[in-house]
Design a protein around this nucleic acid. Structure first.
Lengths: 183, 183
DNA sequence: TCACCCATGTAAGGGGTTACATGATTGC
DNA sequence: GCAATCATGTAACCCCTTACATGGGTGA
């Protein structure tokens, strides 16, 4: 009875209280999205499956006249969440098109390759800034040792390292290009 | 006429000369796999599609009595490769189950969370070691400024940073655990 | 009144892995 | 003779995004 990819983030999101599919989506978009995304097309069908399996329980809870269905963990759901968290298996997949382009960059002119690295750095910088924005919006009084903050700290750290690496590569490529030009 | 995900790595792999599907798979597994994987189930059908589109050309080239079909870039294929490389668009997706578990680690006991971080560090260390092995097997005389080496250097650098970060978190969690115990 | 947000869903289609199937060759 | 490697492919199945569809509520 292994959890699906979305199942994991749904059970985790419900750990701290009942939520609607819409709220789960928002929560994910504001936090785990950088390393674990989820779309409505996954969330709503999965909520039904999880309810059918008895891991969550849904109830109608309209908000201001608006229809709304929230879900909460059952005991079985809490067990399944724990079981997953304790399972030593963990996938780690990356799809980085910038790096793939860099890998084949010999097919480019030196200045085009440099431009590619600049664009890569820009993208990383943008996502670093998004992370810093999230960091800036942490409400005062949040436990500074919270694991969610740890994940954010990690994301910011890797991105900072990455941006610096790209700056370094840019400088190297610029130097190499100048040497070429004055030869 | 956008390239598919596998199409990109196939065209890139054929840039330096004709190769069979089998060889492309091996090449990918020994290099871009860490940020851009490809399976036989993608490669062989895509080779046919790319040939039908006129981007590559296949010819029979048996090796030692063994049937074998190699493919090479056509002029159109070379153009398509360049066009893709110059296109500023680049996807970047990550799926990191370790981080997701860490995000929800409040559902664990402190020692269980620490154990999780240790396992995460181990996984990163393993992949760092695979990268270093690849680095050690670079034939002498390889251009030290090759872009493929740059990608490898990047991978090693990020992984080193990541392993250190995990060690740091382990120390912090250990200290927090001891404080708890002596209270 | 109009735009925006809350809220829930489905369908189509592409992306990707895994397992299976087949068979020849090479080296021990 | 046997295992490993070379070599090519298909089918089933899951994963995931995107676009579409629907409708009510809220605030300017």
């Amino acid at each position: 009875m292994g959890l699906t990819s979305v199942g994991k983030v749904i059970l985790g999101s419900l750990r701290t209280g009942p939520r609607s599919g819409y709220e789960i989506k928002q929560l994910v978009d504001g936090s785990t999205r950088f390393f674990w995304a989820a779309s409505y097309g996954q969330i709503y069908p999965e909520l039904r499956r999880l309810e059918a399996e008895g891991l969550i329980r849904g109830k109608s809870e309209p908000r201001g006249g608006r229809k709304r269905r929230v879900f909460e963990l059952t005991d079985a759901g809490r067990d399944a969440l724990r079981e997953w968290l304790l399972d030593p298996e963990m996938t780690h997949e990356v799809r980085d098109e910038g790096l793939l382009k860099l890998f084949f960059a010999r097919a480019l002119e030196p200045d085009e390759a440099l431009e590619l690295v600049r664009r890569m750095r820009e993208r990383h910088l943008e996502s670093l800034e998004r992370l810093r924005q999230i960091e800036a919006q942490i409400p005062a009084g949040t436990n500074p040792r919270a694991f969610s903050l740890l994940c954010l700290e990690y994301g910011i750290g890797v991105k900072e390292w990455t941006v610096q690496w790209h700056e370094d590569v840019e400088r190297r490529l610029e130097r190499a290009g100048k040497k070429e030009a004055t030869r």
